[in-house]
Design a protein around this nucleic acid. Structure first.
Length: 114
RNA sequence: AGAGUAGGCCGGUCUAUCGCGCACGGGAGUGUGAGGAAAGUCCGGGCAGCACAGAGCACCACAGCGGUUAACGGCCGUCAGGCAGCAAUGUUUGGUCCCUGCUACAGAGACGAGUCGCUUGCACUAAGGCUAGUGCGAAGCGGGUGAAACGAGCACACGGUGGGCUGCAAUUCCAAGUAUACCGACGUUUGAGCGUUGCUCGCGCGAGUUGGAGGGUAGGAAGCGUUAGAUUAAUGAUAGACGCCAUGGAACGUUUAACGUUUAAUGUUUAGUGGUACAGAACCCGGCUUAUAGGCUUGCUCUUUCC
């Protein structure tokens, strides 16, 4: 069981991000919208809370931390798969950790089944 | 004690489990890691690039007086007037009237020393006793009005002082990659265009400039060292306990009034419940403005009680 989340697991680079949003498969797990794509390399994720929904930087930081933390605790659900995943926060209100954790679990389960 | 007023300060703590950025280290690991506003980006400076040949006209900012400062439009002290308050205090205004413009209503007239009315002189006409009308000239007065009537107030006016422009997405370096093939406009001493602050003049450079359409890239380092420092951007999540505030059940105590139990006020202890804000560094400082649960503290003013 791995619980760490070092920098190698963060998705960086504008080209790769654009590529993921262009070619990845999408589904919704409220309050998240998930875009993912299988890959040969390491699993990398990004989390996103849009500025248009949350004007204050504090709220965006908080949501990013919650999503990142939820992924970190449940990343072993992916098993042997290697994917690029993007989590976009969609709801207008700030949801508590339990709700986001549930959504992340649901999303990871769906990716594994496919 | 209560009410008010002006400042200053703090703005959660601990434990467990799992984590993140940076520095050092071969490794284990060790050290370190958001704020009073980090926010808004409103001023001023450092710093960076470009320019430095000037003149005129615009434009922006400032505003009693003195001090402080690297600098400021900030801050401190103080003077005068208006407004609010019993007071402490708060708030607001502050150069000048030479030129330009404005001053409602009322008033003959409000910025043209010229008109109007009355009195008065002369001429003409009607009448011819008083008088009335018209024209010209001069002098004097101004009933009442109004905030103000040759003397004021005000700013959009004038004068004074200051301001070269752009901003860390500045700027420098490294790496990777490409194409000026095509169409049009203007131009090469009859000077396009560029720079010089926005415009005009002037000055300098000057053989290419520009619109369309297309091609490539969008990575990294320095800037950012001063005890945070990234570039999908760290400083956290979960659980529990405590602290603080509000509310209030219960128990105990004190005082008061009726009187062996209640009423009213108040203090201490402790369950429970609710709340615990505003907000997140991206070059750095000095200010301003705005947001903020709750708490601590100092000065002053007023009211009431006791000594």
């Amino acid at each position: 069981m791995v619980n760490t989340f070092p920098k190698e697991n963060k998705l960086c680079g504008q080209l790769r991000i654009t590529q993921l949003y262009k070619d990845g498969k999408r589904f919704t797990a409220w309050p998240l919208r998930v875009t993912y794509q299988e890959t040969e390399e390491n699993t990398q994720i990004l989390v996103w809370a849009p500025k248009s929904l949350f004007k204050r930087a504090v709220k965006r930081n908080y949501l990013r931390r919650l999503m990142r933390e939820a992924y970190r605790l449940h990343q072993d659900m992916l098993g042997d798969k290697h994917c690029l995943i993007a989590f976009n926060y969609m709801d207008k209100d700030v949801q508590p950790f339990a709700v986001i954790e549930k959504a992340i679990c649901k999303a990871l389960k769906k990716i594994t089944e496919n």
